[in-house]
Write a protein that binds this DNA or RNA. Structure first.
Length: 311
DNA sequence: CCCAAGTCCTGGTTGC
DNA sequence: TGCAACCAGGACTTGG
């Protein structure tokens, strides 16, 4: 499922694909996935605006648009953002080099026809303006499809004006690149009797950690997910504070974790799943101490850890 | 039928 | 005793 490293992978690719492009039309909307805005608003306000920046906080993506508009996206559990480029005047559609549409060049179809996936929830069309194309010495203005697929509809899309979605203000610092340190964790954990894993998953403390990376961070820090957060020693907090960015960085380096069905904007899988030490390994041997990884429920989530070396 | 899981919401509990 | 912070658990979603 998309956590911080997966969302960061998508953010970087969207930056490459969408920066400077102008929204042309909105071909498909899933009303159930809209938050605090209507399909009519999307159709009326999005076309004409240019993507100025693709930002991320925690697991949220923010397309910063011209005239103070913000399109905030959350991929939920099963969300994918896919980008397809239509070359020149509709000669061909090209989508990346791997995964879905791998290495193929397809004949162009009428708008939206080539993205007929049953879980396609949003479909946007963007284009480089003629002037901008000339500035970039491109022969024709390519149009680009941005598609949001999401089997489970846990994803969310929100268009807002003046500032990104209000929910972003409730997030804690970014777990990977945010301004936080051991002392921040100490202050946020003191007196708390919730299990450590519950606080790692709390986006208002640190933003971006989900179930997979939580288990991996705890294994790396040799801390039990069941430990009451307020009982951590300074030495333990120190291990935790160094493993959080370290594991997330590894996920970013490997272009995300495709243990379930994460793919990037070209439909390619990531590589972090090959490095998993705890998540999903219940019944298997711990790579550090040799004991058997067990699975429990913590904070309502399936949790794998090693009782032999995580305290 | 139960499970997966991110976020929001509710209702009960704790402790100052 | 009052009240806010805290914590657990359910709703939502749909395919395996």
């Amino acid at each position: 499922m998309p956590e911080l490293p997966e969302v960061e992978t998508v953010r970087r690719q969207l930056g490459q694909s969408l920066l400077g492009l102008r929204f042309v039309s909105v071909e498909r909307i899933e009303p159930a996935m809209l938050l605090d805005c209507t399909p009519e608003q999307i159709r009326a306000e999005l076309p004409g605006r240019v993507v100025e920046e693709v930002a991320r906080k925690g697991k949220f993506l923010v397309l910063v648009l011209t005239e103070d508009a913000y399109l905030t996206l959350h991929l939920g559990m099963t969300g994918h953002l896919l980008v397809a480029r239509e070359l020149g005047s509709g000669a061909a559609v090209q989508r990346g080099t791997g995964g879905i549409g791998a290495g193929r060049t397809e004949k162009s179809q009428p708008a939206g026809a080539e993205v007929s996936d049953p879980h396609s929830r949003f479909l946007f069309s963007l284009r480089l303006s003629a002037d901008e194309a000339a500035d970039r010495h491109e022969q024709a203005a390519p149009s680009v499809w941005l598609e949001f697929r999401d089997m489970r509809k846990f994803g969310r899309v929100q268009l807002s004006f003046g500032s990104p979605a209000p929910r972003l203000a409730r997030l804690g610092p970014d777990a990977w690149k945010g301004a936080w340190d051991i002392d921040y964790l100490r202050v946020r954990f003191v007196g708390r009797r919730a299990p450590l894993k519950a606080l790692l998953l709390d986006q208002s403390i640190l933003a971006g950690i989900g179930n997979i990376y939580a288990d991996e961070i705890l294994w790396a820090a040799q801390l039990s997910p069941l430990r009451l957060a307020g009982t951590l020693t300074l030495e333990e907090l120190s291990r935790l504070a160094s493993e959080i960015p370290r594991r997330l960085e590894e996920g970013v380096r490997l272009l995300g974790c495709s243990i379930s069905d994460f793919v990037d904007t070209d439909g390619r899988a990531g590589g972090f799943q090959g490095t998993l030490k705890a998540y999903g390994r219940q019944g298997q041997t711990c790579g550090r101490c040799g004991q058997t990884i067990v699975r429990v429920i913590v904070a309502g989530r399936g949790t794998a850890f090693c009782p032999g070396c995580q305290f």
